[in-house]
Amino acid sequence: MKHTGVWALAETHGGKLRDVSFELLARGRALADQLGCELVSVVMAEPMPQEELQELIARGADRVLAVEGEALGDFIAETHSNVLCGLIGERRPEVVLAAATFNGRTLLPHAAMRLHAGLTADCTGLAIDPDTRDLIQTRPAIGGNILATIKSPNHRPQMATVRPKSTRPLPRDAARTGEVERVAFRPQWLDGRVRKIGERADQQDEANIQETDVVVAGGRGMKKAEHFAMLRELAGHLHGVVGASRDAVDRGWAVYPRQVGLSGKTVTPKLYVAVGISGAIQHLAGMKTADVIMAINADEDAPIFQVADFGIVGDLFEVLPLLNDRLAQEGNP
């Protein structure tokens, strides 16, 4: 049986679809159109309301494959991997995409190992070779210093995780039609070895630097933790989230989940604001693919200005309050 169909794994949190699910459908739609095949949105979660699943059709899916069970409410790698490998074995998709999130980057390598499938991590570009139907995957490596193009010519399905925020969701189209297929969770999929026994929220706030349109990051130039209040104000005006360089995290001014760079997170926002960050290669690796980069730094030779679209050389303690006042007056909604 030949492999056909593009699958995009949806992600849920607290019974709701996460935005990355829609971004992934935008990617999948383009690939399915090139391949001339069906785009399937795969949901593995606790039972979901019909209108929530219908939303996946409005966002580009031809079919929703919803595997529902109480056992899928928490992300347990082994159980989710059993479901995914089971379904792939039965239905044989050609391409399987997941978001390069904590869970996506756990589940896909687990399943790919069992399937002896090729898997490319954290892709920023995906295309189809029309002659071979190979998935042409582009991803940054070596701290963003190179862009590698990767394919899996002899193995199916072709699997990839896709960097969040590297594409925009398709506009919602309520007129789109498609089938919602519900599959009951099968007992043999349950792996009861690992159990989730607790959780706690990120203490600073709920937002996440990899899934926001604007990141306002501070570095060593901020001088102390209290000064991050100015960054939180700026982030408020710009509807963004505060990030930090390794220096700032190592000094305890921000928590590790906020760290941008080689040993922290890679972010691809629409706007990245670097304040008091010199722009060491380790930091640039985590943010240089942002759409627009803005920098404020006292040192005009700081490497951050090399990658900036707009930079201000000056004392951040003078510039930031002025900027915050200006944006407050703008009455930016």
Binding site: T120, P140, I146, L147, A148, T149, I150, Q306, V307, A308
Partner: peptide, 16 residues
């Protein structure tokens, strides 16, 4: 299963 078929070095400088 995977093959690296091309390596490029993206330009870093934006000249803003």
């Amino acid at each position: 299963p995977t093959r690296v078929v091309k390596i490029e070095s993206p330009k870093v400088t934006r000249g803003g």
